[in-house]
């Protein structure tokens, strides 16, 4: 009897998601036992053609990490969708756009200009910018098209499930994989797997009081108390607007959560929700003072939308 097929693919990502799959350590052998690996470019043979030759739906499960940054990413995303029964957006980039989604604050040309012209160590008098098609003396070379905006996986194709995190916690990945291997039923389409159903605060051991914020502080210039809720201390922590599941790793390490697990269930826009929450607990009635307090948040978009800018409500103005 042939085993079901598994595909793991990376689009615009750092490889951390693949590492977190490897970090299930010895259990990777269980995966090997249960599945035929149809595709895993980081670890195994990669054949576009073979995938193209498959029947639609031939792959049982595809774990897709990385965002859609260029034409190749999009092409493979659509191809894998067609060939997979279950397509999972794996990790922050595929799920929400990820850290690299902050690039949507700039246009394509601005990014290229910064990297290839403005860098102090780059010497590029002819202002050469990589091209999708370039001629060398021996012939033509091609590169995929670098899009103006980055998109999450579900912005280019239909997605069945999401596994959040930057990267997903290996234990959570393992639990999902074992669940699937055991053949247990999956939740409704569109569900988030491998994470909790509440916000980070649920698992956070820090002491929480009623919140009233008079001052925002930065980790650069202040040391937080290790026992008390960071937000109460004025350090913006995205924990309240972030789904649980990572084990509150960052907060336990003494720094605020930045929200890589994405919004909790029911929350449409993680950044907007946190902004709304923070705005509500500013401890002042005086508009000038409120403005002064708010102005202490130096980088609102990078703070509230660190991982979710491309999938936020803000994205529309970009397109």
């Amino acid at each position: 009897m042939s085993k079901p097929k598994l595909a793991i693919y990376w689009a615009a990502s750092c490889g951390g998601c693949d590492v977190s799959i490897l970090d299930i350590h010895e259990h990777i052998l269980d995966v090997d036992k249960a599945f035929d690996l149809a595709l895993w470019p980081v670890a195994a043979d990669f054949k576009y053609k073979d995938v193209e030759a498959m029947q639609d739906g031939e792959i049982l499960l595809t774990l897709f990490n990385g965002a859609i940054r260029n034409s190749e990413n999009e092409h493979i995303a659509k191809l894998l969708r067609k060939k997979s029964k279950v397509l999972v957006a794996f990790g922050s980039c595929a799920h929400l756009g990820g850290v690299i989604g902050m690039a949507n604050l700039s246009k394509r040309d601005e990014i290229l200009d910064t990297v290839y012209n403005k860098s102090v160590s780059t010497h590029n008098p002819e202002r050469i910018i990589p091209q999708t098609l370039s001629r060398v003396k021996e012939g033509e070379l091609t590169l995929p098209k670098f899009y103006n905006y980055l998109r999450s996986l579900d912005q280019v194709t239909d997605v069945d499930y999401y596994i959040p995190g930057c990267p997903p916690n290996p234990e959570q990945v393992l639990a999902v994989v074992q669940h699937i291997i055991a053949g247990k039923p999956l939740p409704p389409k569109g569900s988030v797997l491998g994470a909790g159903d509440k916000s980070q605060c649920d698992e956070c051991k820090r002491k929480k009081n009623v919140k009233k914020i008079r001052e925002f502080r930065r980790i650069a210039t202040a040391i937080p108390d290790p026992e008390i809720c960071l937000l109460e201390q004025g350090f913006i922590c995205m924990g309240p607007a972030t789904r649980s599941g990572c084990g509150v790793a960052c907060v336990n390490a003494g720094v605020p959560c930045r929200g890589c697990y994405g919004p909790p269930p029911n929350v449409l826009d993680q950044g907007a929700k946190m902004l709304s929450a923070i705005a509500s607990v500013i401890d002042s009635d005086n508009p000038d003072e409120i403005n002064q307090i708010i102005s202490q948040v130096e980088d609102p978009v990078g703070t509230f939308y660190r991982f979710s800018l491309p999938t936020s409500l803000l994205r529309r103005s970009n397109i």
């Binding site: 615009a12 902050m102 990297v115 590169l143």
Partner: peptide, 10 residues
């Protein structure tokens, strides 16, 4: 290397 993510910008 056909990929770029633009950390230097964002």
């Amino acid at each position: 290397i056909p990929e770029l993510r633009g950390f230097e910008k964002f």
